[in-house]
């Protein structure tokens, strides 16, 4: 079997304690949440932290608090998140996204924080050390060529988290805690469109919670494109949140594409186009076209890149039809292998 490289294990009981350890060890330490991303990566030699710091003993990280909106602890497992009825009812896109992460067994371990911080993915990178040695490694780790685009100076590894696009569409903010203090930022500002340096996170910061605004008037949905009905990372994610006025006019909208770049991509053009309109078929068609422009699928995930590009507008349209109120659950089942709730 594949073995983990050696590391020192820390199990702090409080957030303060955890922050102190991180402040001390700096980039030699990594945070271990559910481990469903980090541990396989360590076995493949993609990360070799000298210190691993588990968050499991910090119970406050699993709190879900109702205020004006909702605050969700970063340590909540996806299975726990799925059993929360407020999330299910009010933050549909998040619930739907969490529901289609990986497999039930993995969701039992996987945390929301880990999903947000998920390493970017690439078929040339998510391989064993021996495999990567045989291509002389790549830009993202131990090498100097990007094999996806040999002229590229940056890494094009793909943001493959399911929940992040949904959260960005829902306007989520996150709290980052360190010994030096804490800050709250919009989730989209947490990301860089760079497969290597994809997070604006200082090595000493812990993502402690996700903060969601109240939802009155908003409807949201999440569509995921993947090969199979379970197990697979998204090769395209579409998260749409729309705020309607009473007569069905779009008051505000956020359309986010996942797995088409190194970060979740928010299409402000599409949102601008939608605002003030009623979602009729023509508007849906055009929004699909506009929003799809921000996507640049490259050949480092599953499925044919030109095909992926071709179906992006379709998926955006499906999502829009759904927030409009169309019942397209059978289509959802067929092409996205996803049930509605």
């Amino acid at each position: 079997m594949m073995r983990l490289p050696p590391f020192r294990f820390h199990a702090p009981e409080t957030l303060e304690e955890a922050a102190a350890i991180l402040a001390d060890k700096g980039s030699d330490a990594m945070i271990l949440a559910g481990g469903t991303d980090l541990l396989p990566n360590m076995k493949r030699g993609q990360h070799t932290p000298k210190h691993l710091l588990t968050l499991r003993r910090i119970s406050s990280l699993r709190d879900v608090r109702n205020g004006s909106g909702l605050s969700i602890g970063a340590g909540l497992t996806l299975t726990q998140l799925l059993s929360n009825q407020t999330i299910r009812k009010d933050y549909t896109a998040l619930w739907q996204a969490a529901k289609v992460v990986a497999t039930p067994q993995l969701r039992n371990m996987a945390t929301l924080g880990g999903n947000i911080c998920l390493d970017t993915r690439c078929n040339f990178y998510d391989q064993s050390k021996e495999w990567r040695k045989a291509i002389n490694y790549c830009l993202k780790k131990d090498g100097d060529t990007c094999w996806v685009a040999t002229s590229s100076k940056t890494c094009l590894a793909v943001s493959s988290t399911d929940t992040a696009p949904a959260l960005v569409a829902l306007g989520a903010r996150i709290r980052l805690v360190s010994s030096a203090g804490e800050r709250v930022i919009r989730l989209e500002d947490f990301y860089n469109n760079d497969g290597l340096d994809y997070l604006n996170r200082r090595a000493d910061e812990i993502l402690s919670e996700v903060i969601l605004e109240p939802v009155s008037g908003w409807k949201s949905t999440y569509w995921k494109l993947r090969r199979r009905g379970s197990f697979d990372f998204p090769v395209l994610a579409v998260a749409v949140a729309v705020k309607f006025t009473d007569d069905g006019t779009v008051e505000d909208a956020r359309i986010v594409l996942g797995a088409v770049a190194s970060m979740p991509m928010l299409s402000t053009d599409a949102a601008e186009f939608l605002i003030g309109k009623k979602i009729d078929d023509e508007v849906i068609r055009e929004t699909g076209r506009i929003a799809a422009k921000i996507a640049r699928p490259v050949n480092n995930t599953d499925l044919d890149p030109p095909w992926r590009k071709k179906v992006i507008p379709e998926f955006i349209r499906y999502a829009l039809r759904e927030v409009r109120g169309d019942d397209i659950s059978s289509l959802r089942q067929r092409v996205a292998h996803q049930s509605r709730s």
Partner: peptide, 16 residues
């Protein structure tokens, strides 16, 4: 090289 030597990336049916 083998394109996808893992159960995740070598695609075969799941029970779904």
């Amino acid at each position: 090289l083998h394109r996808n030597p893992s159960m995740l990336d070598y695609k075969s049916l799941t029970m779904h």
